[in-house]
Design a protein around this nucleic acid. Structure first.
Lengths: 202, 202
DNA sequence: TGTACATCAGTGAACGCGCGTTCACTGATGTAC
DNA sequence: TGTACATCAGTGAACGCGCGTTCACTGATGTAC
């Protein structure tokens, strides 16, 4: 289903349950992981019958896409907040480090949501809202990178390629740290060091 | 089950089916993805009854761990081959680029196996063989990095941190490219450029 | 203000599905004598 | 060489499970008059 940002208004429906179902889904992801995210589990968590979600979502994939979009928004928000709260001071890349930390910590805080967001990118071709979220999140990050460059950090690298490199690094670090693979390969490194290392490279 | 590298020998069992089940599992991962990897599907693919796999694997997780170990070995092998076939020539990091390409191409060739390997790292605490594979793969890569450093590439960075950074970057690029997220954010970049960019950073 | 009607979110029973796992069985193959 | 026996990989029926989805229903709420 192609869901728009503006949910269809109904005279007597305040969309209470719809919002609650999404909130419950985020809880389930955080507590029990992506495998546990089913329509029935969401209904149980919201205290309604298992048929109720069908009134708000066409099917499971539809729900997942909406949850992923909501999660995307949350992460993008956390990152923007972290960046805006971090002064450039003497280090032009300080805000980027803050952004990277927010990204990694977001992934570690809710691994299930992180997985869902990643896996849903294939789905996103069919969901305009999700597609917009992805795009907006990346564009936001890209502008932070350009600001750091404008202040003298790696000014000679093409900003898109630089943003892409940082993004892949931070994303990969999140994944590998989450699964304990990074720590296993590099037992002495702390997460802070790993994040800094990823940005300092070179 | 703690499975050892040496499979228990049985007088009349040549382990034909066991090996076939693993091969079928790899096929299923490549063709239909990780969701489709079930004991019953593997049995079907091997042309045996659905109860047969229970003679060789304690349960589904046991099978997955063995498949992941096999996949890990394959990837590590591909990387080693790529590195050994690439002369240092004038560019000390040429073998590392070859390694990165092999890693990414392996992920793109069999996304299901890639997912399984990543997700199984949590499982690996319970499977000694898989733990050894992970460790061996990383150690191999680390030695390649040290060789590049010995030839003058980024010699001042602590090799473990450098290896970790490259690993996370390449891993993240694989994931994001696989899901189309990287291309969406950076429509003009080719995979080759992205790989080079990740290693060139800085 | 009051009444008749329409809407529709949520109910709960029911459906078919594929799954993991168990278990008595059978039949081929290796071993002991 | 031949025979009796033991082993055990693979069979196929059966089990219970949770899932997504459908559907007639009911009851609360908004609307028209």
């Amino acid at each position: 289903m192609e869901t728009d940002l503006v949910t269809p208004t109904s005279p007597r429906n305040t969309d209470g349950l719809r919002a609650k179902l999404i909130a419950v889904a985020l809880d389930i992801l955080e507590r029990d992981g992506i495998e546990a995210l089913t329509l029935r589990a969401v209904a149980r968590g919201a205290g309604v019958s298992h048929g109720a979600p069908a009134r708000h979502f066409d099917n499971l994939d539809d729900l997942k896409a909406e949850v992923a979009a909501a999660g995307h928004r949350m992460v993008a928000n956390d990152i923007a907040t972290a960046v805006l709260q971090t002064p450039f001071d003497d280090d032009p890349k300080a805000p980027l480090i803050a952004a990277a930390k927010a990204y990694v910590h977001g992934a570690l805080k809710n691994p299930g949501l992180f997985s869902l967001i990643v896996r849903t990118s294939t789905l996103s071709q069919r969901n305009a809202a999700l597609r917009r979220e992805t795009r907006a999140a990346y564009d936001g990050f890209h502008s932070f990178v350009k600001q750091a460059q404008a202040r003298g950090w790696k000014p000679d690298i093409e900003s898109k390629l630089l943003a892409g490199s940082i993004w892949t690094s931070v994303h990969g670090l999140s994944t590998l740290w989450l699964h304990g693979a990074y720590q296993q390969a590099n037992p002495d490194a702390t997460l802070e060091e790993a994040i800094a290392g990823v940005l300092d490279l070179g």
